[in-house]
Design a protein around this nucleic acid. Sequence first.
DNA 1: CACTTCCGTTTACAATTGTAATCTTTAATT
DNA 2: AATTAAAGATTACAATTGTAAACGGAAGTG
Lengths: 149, 149
Amino acid sequence: MTIEMDKDITNAEWEVMRVVWAQTEVPSQVIIDVLMDKRGWKEPTIKTLIGRLVKKGALKTRKEGRKFLYSTDIKEDALVNETLDHFFHNICSKDIGKTIGVLIDEAILSHEDVALLKEKLIQKEQVAYDTVPCNCVKGQCQCQCQRHG
Amino acid sequence: MTIEMDKDITNAEWEVMRVVWAQTEVPSQVIIDVLMDKRGWKEPTIKTLIGRLVKKGALKTRKEGRKFLYSTDIKEDALVNETLDHFFHNICSKDIGKTIGVLIDEAILSHEDVALLKEKLIQKEQVAYDTVPCNCVKGQCQCQCQRHG
DNA sequence: CACTTCCGTTTACAATTGTAATCTTTAATT
DNA sequence: AATTAAAGATTACAATTGTAAACGGAAGTG
């Protein structure tokens, strides 16, 4: 699931990726139109972002006539998941459940989504722990055994 | 739930925050010890991070004798949730359910966590949609009505 | 063929971020 | 009181990021 790429996708670059993900191949003009409109960026700004993504290997190009068509091998869901996993390293593993709980509270879900998640929880029950072990470094969480001072 | 603060917490700064969250008030020496050990950072590096957090209002100080004790008003779970909400803006609302699904798959959960989440899903069912409306800008997702090109 | 337009490339530039050395107070110790 | 040690403040500096202008070459137009 790890994506082999030089660098991370920055927030601004993410907007470009979303346009590319929405299509199979896009000319820069489409990216520019969408983002000038959505973000109010100037054309050169968007060109810069495209260029950086190409340079860092996140976008591929195919020359068609005089212009390029942009595409990507990076899967949107894979990158989303990887980014979230990475962020979750900032949280004590004991708190992951509650954190997901808040996400559920705040999400707009379909009946189908709810059913899917319920199903997953039934699976999860099979492998659930009595107590989730804390994975924090000493001094970085409140689990008693590890408390400082 | 929005935290009034000048700037965002960067990744490196997050490490400092976690040490502060783990205690009520901490002297810099504790933060330094924990992070020199965990991250291999030099002492001045950690002092810089602390200083920046104080400057941006994320950490409060209380002078005790010659040194300061650091604390924060920012709630860890509030910041976590806010950060996640923010990130979820990068995802089509139709895909939030699936994304949470992957989080559940990958999480280590306790029986209690599973029960909590199940409970939340039961609640959620009451307000679930038949179809989650897409919230994307035209050109940034594949929902048919909005497809480009 | 000269002119203009489009598009990708190069350059710019300030702010943020990661990483750290050095300086300055002030407190502790001799 | 003089010396040392600790802690916060100041300065440093390269890389990244957000934001954009300017340049150059190819393609279409008159």
